[in-house]
Each structure stands twice: as C-alpha cells, then as structure tokens.
C-alpha cells in the first residue's frame, strides 16, 4: 500500500464514499441511535471496531473461501466479532450496553459491514482492508456524531448527556448544557428528527461537493441569460 492508496482509502471512507451519507448503508442504527452524541459515537465506535476486525480477518482468508459460501463465511466472521464486542461491552460498559440494546447485535446485519467485506476486503490485502474498514467505520462514526450531536443539541439543548454510561460515574459532570433553560425541541430526538437530520446532512454534503466542483471549474463561464426551466 503506497501513500496514494492510503490517501485514497482514507478519503473514500471519510468523505467520497461515506457509508452514512453516500452509500446510505447502515441506516437502521444510524437513525435509531443518533438521538444523543454519546449513544451515536459509542455505536459508531463499536461498528468501527467490528468493521476493522472483520475486514482484517476476511482479507487474509479471502482466497481460501470458495465463491458459493463466500457470504455465509463473511457473515459468520462478522457475527462472531459482533458477539465478542457485545460480550465485552456487557462486561465492561454495562450502562451503554443497556442503552444501545438491540443495536449492538444488529451490527451483524448492518449492511455496511458486509458491503465492505464484499467489495473491498474480499479483493484486497489485509492491511489495506483493515484500513478501509477502519476508515469506513470512522466515516460512519463521524456522521453519527454530527447527527447525534445536532439532534441532542436541538432536542435537549445539551451535549454529551449520558457520558457517564460510557466512561463511568466520574464523567457525570462532563455534560454540557449549551442552552440553559431550554424548552426542548422534541421532534429532533424523536424518530422523524433522525430522518430530517440525515436528509439535511446529505443535502449539506452534496452542496459542499457542488461548490467544490464549481470552484474547481471556475472558468469564467458566461453567466448571462441563465434561466432555469420550470
């Protein structure tokens, strides 16, 4: 893996092929768990861990798996890894484990994990695959973090609420009350808020892309008489 490939994988994961905003994979947890920053980031990191490990373990065995059982084997590997992560969380981060609940085992069915296994890890060497899994996971985590942060901020006026569940009671004071005496805009933390928020994030990304493209072109195109149809 040379520097260019490295850059490409990182860029793909975090921006160009971002699983949350571009591939639109793994929406179920993305929408369900992003009602607070801590929940969102925790699930994002758990997914990242699983993706890194699964890509890293699928890549070395890829040539020994015959085509007809490719997917069962990948699912098996992913399921094992998820279960391991679940045990670990249950043991050492019980509060978070309760909050994330069903969504931890659901990482198995998160299409993004299998999608990376299929489209990248099954065709690339272990190191690149691990990096790809990690970066895709980080990309998802980033989207989750932004979505969770925004929803929590608008919905409750706080940030990092529930941080004690992840880091223990010592972190209780870390909760930031950004807007004191806030009425709470419940829509944001209820399920519709997730859809609206994701829609806005995707729109925002597209807008940034378009702007970058326009800048890249930036040749003085004739602007006059420009008309939109309809």
């Amino acid at each position: 893996m040379n520097a260019n490939e490295f850059k490409e994988i990182v860029h793909n994961g975090l921006w160009k092929q971002n699983p949350g905003l571009v591939q639109l994979l793994g929406l179920c947890p993305l929408l369900a768990i992003s009602n607070s920053l801590v929940n969102a980031v925790s699930l994002g990191l758990a997914t990242t861990l699983v993706m890194t490990l699964s890509s890293a373990s699928i890549a070395p065995v890829r040539s020994y798996v015959p085509n007809e059982i490719r997917i069962p084997v990948f699912v098996l590997i992913i399921a094992v890894l998820v279960t391991v992560v679940q045990y670990l969380m249950n043991a050492y981060m019980y509060g978070l484990y309760v909050v994330l609940g069903i969504f931890i085992p659901l990482i198995v069915t998160n299409c993004i994990v299998l999608a990376r296994a299929e489209s990248f890890a099954s065709k690339n060497p272990p190191l690149a695959s691990a990096l790809d899994g990690f970066m895709m996971g980080l990309g998802l985590t980033a989207v989750l973090a932004v979505l969770g942060g925004v929803r929590e901020l608008i919905g409750k006026g706080t940030l990092l609420s529930g941080i004690d569940l992840a880091l223990g009671d010592g972190a209780k004071d870390w909760v930031i009350h950004v807007i004191p005496d806030y009425h709470g805009f419940l829509l944001a933390i209820l399920p519709p808020g997730a859809f609206i928020g994701l829609g806005l994030l995707i729109a925002g990304k597209n807008w940034l892309n378009l702007r970058a493209e326009a800048k890249a072109r930036s040749n003085p195109a004739p602007l006059s008489n420009e008309a939109v149809q309809g």
Binding site: V61, Y64, V65, P66, E68, I69, P72, V73, L76, I77, A79, V80, T83, V84, Y87, L88
Partner: peptide, 19 residues
C-alpha cells in the same frame, strides 16, 4: 464446500467460547 464452512464454524465457535 460443506467442509470449508464447517472449518470456519469451528474456529468461530471457539473464539466465541473463549470470549
């Protein structure tokens, strides 16, 4: 094919059991 899948199943189960 079956043998292949069994092999992976054994390894997976072993890891789970250990955890």
């Amino acid at each position: 094919t079956a043998a292949n899948l069994v092999f992976f199943a054994i390894i997976g189960t072993a890891i789970l059991a250990a955890t």
